[in-house]
Simulated scan of single mutants.
Amino acid sequence: MADAPADDVPIGPVPPASTPAVTFISGGHTLLGVLHVPAGPGPHPVVVLLHGFPGNERNFDLAQALRQAGYAALVFHYRGSWGVGGSYAWGHVLEDAARVTRAVREEAAAAEHRLDPGRPALVGHSLGGFAALMTAAQDSAVRAVVSVAAFDLGVAAVGCRADPGAREAYAAGWQDELPPADAGPSRHRFPRSPPGVLKRVKPPVQAP
């Protein structure tokens, strides 16, 4: 009969999976995040998850699925959202996404959390999908990018430039959809674009 294992012998992968809270400084404000680290010594490729306009969906389900597949996955919140200080702005979303994408590759963070700084990836949804594409375009170290149902700020900008009143109408359309300052996340609705601001462009008809 084989000897029983000693009490101090670990059972299962070493080190185990973990979910540490992490922070990043961007624009002078502390961004809050949760890192989902797989079991095992690593180093693990790391995926930065970029959520959309702050509502109910924060992509923790994707983070759990990625960790089960062997990827470290980070969910963080932009300035002005989910308890983070600073003002919420589309420009700040891009700045924060770029800063965090660099931060997970820094030597200290990679060593502490068993991350592979040579294999970063971005996954974004809605507004985060736009931020993922823009960040990857500016950061050559990003190895892969996924954009899910991206909101195209470029199209919005073109529409605003083409129509002098579109910018005001577009801003008003968003403002009407925002909840009161004391409303919880469950009352947060996603904004609709004012009529005529965002127009679907039909692809050119190709000859058979």
Rank of each mutant, 00 (worst) to 15 (best):
R105T: 06
L50R: 01
V104K: 04
S193I: 00
G12S: 06
D182W: 13
Q64I: 12
V201F: 05
F190K: 02
D152M: 14
E57D: 12
D8R: 08
A121T: 02
L74W: 00
G12E: 04
L31C: 10
A4T: 13
G28N: 08
P164M: 01
S81G: 01
A17T: 05
V93N: 05
D182E: 15
G154P: 12
R143Y: 00
P5I: 13
V158A: 15
G165W: 07
V37P: 01
D139K: 00
V155C: 09
Y71S: 05
R99T: 15
S81I: 11
E112Y: 00
H29C: 08
P179V: 02
L74N: 01
S26L: 10
G118E: 14
S193R: 06
P179W: 06
P194D: 07
L32M: 08
A17D: 13
D61A: 13
A157F: 12
E177Y: 15
D182M: 04
P13C: 10
F53N: 03
G173I: 07
G91V: 05
D8W: 08
T23Q: 13
F76V: 04
D3H: 14
F53W: 03
A183G: 05
A137H: 07
S87C: 09
V148R: 02
C160L: 06
P38Y: 11
V104Y: 04
V75D: 00
V145W: 03
K199C: 10
P120C: 02
A181C: 07
T30H: 04
V93E: 10
G42S: 08
G33R: 02
A63V: 06
G28K: 07
A183M: 03
R200G: 13
P204I: 14
V14W: 15
L153P: 06
V48H: 01
A150C: 03
P185S: 06
G52K: 00
R102E: 15
H44L: 05
P20I: 00
P208V: 11
E168V: 11
P10H: 12
V34Q: 15
Y170H: 13
G52H: 00
G52E: 01
R105P: 05
R99P: 04
G33M: 01
A110R: 05
R99K: 04
V14F: 11
S26E: 09
F130M: 07
V100Q: 01
F24T: 09
P16D: 11
P179T: 08
F53C: 01
V123A: 10
S26G: 08
D7N: 07
A4S: 14
A110K: 06
H113A: 02
L62F: 11
G33F: 09
I11C: 11
Y78M: 10
G196R: 08
P195G: 12
G42I: 08
G124S: 02
